[in-house]
């Protein structure tokens, strides 16, 4: 059920599914790469999301109808392609589990703090989308036993590197910013650095595991705060 829809005068939305499944983010990432390779001459931005791909195009070179025509064979090949090529890279991200919301989360979930940590770092997550801020990767799927709604009032300042959860998602704040998620810990990793190539180590479709470290290891790795 692939659908095309103009998104204004200079973008085309390609809807790929009604709802995401576990394999879809990695499949969309593969499609985004192919689209960049085949149509990079007329596109300015390719933005993968949970169920869609938004293509920002250069109106001086192409319009949405011509773009849809050029996309058709790429999409056909993608639909035929096997899922096995789409494992996504695995990142092992160190985390010092000492977030200020850890006791509260444990209490709300009726679990011990250690169980919260164990459940959080036992899972392998998928990058489903990157948005909200540079390098902010939405990771799914958080264990249902840890699912909590966002804070009623967002914090005005969440430090860079904070590991946080909300609903069935988890994420690391790449920069110090406002935020409404619950803070479980801190990672010494910087998830966005404009001077680095690529600026963000994570890509949609990649896999992530969190490795618990202690405060000494956090500081040794350059962790602040």
């Amino acid at each position: 059920m692939i659908q095309f829809e103009p998104a204004g005068a200079e973008a085309l939305l390609v809807r790929l599914a009604e709802a995401p499944d576990a394999a879809l983010p990695a499949r969309i990432a593969v499609l985004a790469e192919r689209v960049r390779a085949e149509l990079g001459d007329v596109l300015t931005d390719v933005v993968p999301a949970w169920t869609s791909l938004l293509l920002h195009y250069d109106l001086r070179r192409i319009d949405h109808r011509q773009l849809a025509e050029r996309l058709a064979p790429v999409l056909e090949a993608w639909q035929r392609g096997p899922d096995t090529q789409t494992a996504g890279r695995l990142h092992l991200i160190p985390v010092w589990y000492a977030g200020e919301d850890l006791p509260w989360v444990a209490q709300q979930c009726g679990l011990s703090v250690n169980t919260v940590i164990d459940l959080h770092c036992a899972a392998e997550y998928r990058v489903g989308a990157i948005g909200f801020a540079p390098g902010f990767a939405y990771l799914t799927e958080l264990d249902a036993r840890l699912a909590l709604p966002r804070r009623a009032t967002p914090r005005t300042r969440v430090p860079a590197g904070s590991l946080a959860i909300a609903e069935r998602q988890t994420a690391i704040y790449p920069q110090t910013s406002p935020g409404g998620w619950h803070l479980l810990g801190r990672s010494p990793w910087r998830l966005f650095d404009a001077a680095r190539q690529p600026p963000c180590p994570l890509a949609v479709g990649d896999r992530v595991r969190f490795i618990p470290i202690d405060e000494a290891a956090y500081r040794a790795a350059g962790g602040e705060g």
């Binding site: 998104a7 204004g8 933005v47 999301a49 869609s52």
Partner: peptide, 11 residues
């Protein structure tokens, strides 16, 4: 609306 999508200028 269930899922976030990329957004374009003027949305």
């Amino acid at each position: 609306r269930p899922w976030s999508e990329g957004v374009a200028f003027g949305a």
